[in-house]
């Protein structure tokens, strides 16, 4: 479904993603692991088109700071130069790092905004699904999103992108800053999404809570691919094991 081919992203002269090639197949749950500044967010933002948007913005202002090389393909079609909006239209939706939401809007309005590109009946359907997945959001539907707790904001951030009806859901460190209980709750939700045949590509620093869910995983360091393989292969690799699984 998603193919990343020889992707390189430079900020100024610093290489954030180095010659990365990877693939996510339809229906798969794929993880990508790496420590701080490994290039996870850069990769996710590049797949979603946000890095390209930033690059164009900076070029309009007269700067040339970001360089993107390589190819991105979705369903066999080249999307390297597509605008973020067109990628969302195709079903590539990113839930960004640190659970961003529209803080001044209510929970319900946030979900409606998430479904901005979708038809009304589809949005209704997805909102019902989100409320089923996260019942506590339903209770707070008319509350301002900025007033929710961190955990609820993370649920809303996920609800927001689910309302956009992704076919490929990209997630950048969804577990960041959550308590173990909340992490479990979220893992449960992710499992459910995966069972619903949603294709998920997820980045995390710490792989352990995600491990039971993934079909395959990649490990990157300084933007470079270190190892890849099935969940079991990753756990069996001693270096990876100590660095990303805390075992």
């Amino acid at each position: 479904m998603l193919e990343v081919k020889e992707l390189m992203v430079f900020y100024e002269n610093a290489l954030a993603v180095n010659n990365l090639s990877l693939e996510v197949k339809e229906g798969e749950f794929v993880g990508i692991f790496g420590s701080n500044s490994a290039g996870k967010s850069t990769l996710m933002n590049t797949i979603a088109g946000l890095t390209l948007h930033l690059k164009y913005r900076e070029e309009r202002r007269g700067g040339e700071r970001i360089t993107i090389l390589g190819r991105l393909k979705f369903d066999g079609e080249d999307i390297t130069h597509l605008k973020p909006v067109d990628r969302v239209q195709k079903g590539i939706v990113l839930c960004r790092e640190r659970h961003p939401i529209f803080r001044d809007n209510t929970v319900q309005e946030n979900l409606q905004l998430g479904g901005y590109l979708r038809k009304e009946h589809e949005v209704k359907e997805s909102i019902a699904f989100v409320f089923e997945l996260f019942p506590s959001l339903k209770r707070r539907r008319n509350q301002k999103a900025g007033m929710l707790s961190g955990g609820e904001q993370e649920m809303l951030a996920i609800g927001l992108v689910l309302a956009a009806r992704p076919r490929l859901l990209l997630m950048d460190e969804p577990l960041l800053g959550l308590s173990p209980v909340m992490q479990q709750e979220l893992v449960r939700a992710l499992k459910r999404l995966s069972q619903e045949k949603l294709t998920i590509f997820l980045a995390e620093q710490y792989a352990r809570p995600i491990m039971p869910l993934i079909d395959r995983g990649y490990v990157i360091e300084n933007g470079t691919l270190i190892v890849s393989g099935s969940g079991k292969e990753l756990v069996d690799n001693p270096e990876v094991r100590s660095a990303y699984f805390g075992m």
Binding site: A48, G49, L50, H53, P84, V85, V88, Q89, V93, L94, C95, R96, P100, I101, F102, R103, D104, N105, E109, Q112, L113, G114, G115, Y116, L117, L160, V161, A163, A164
Partner: peptide, 18 residues
């Protein structure tokens, strides 16, 4: 709503297709 969303957080708005 979309316009206000934009004003609040441009990249989040972009990532849901605004």
């Amino acid at each position: 709503l979309a316009l206000r969303g934009m004003a609040q957080d441009e990249y989040t708005a972009l990532s849901v297709g605004i």
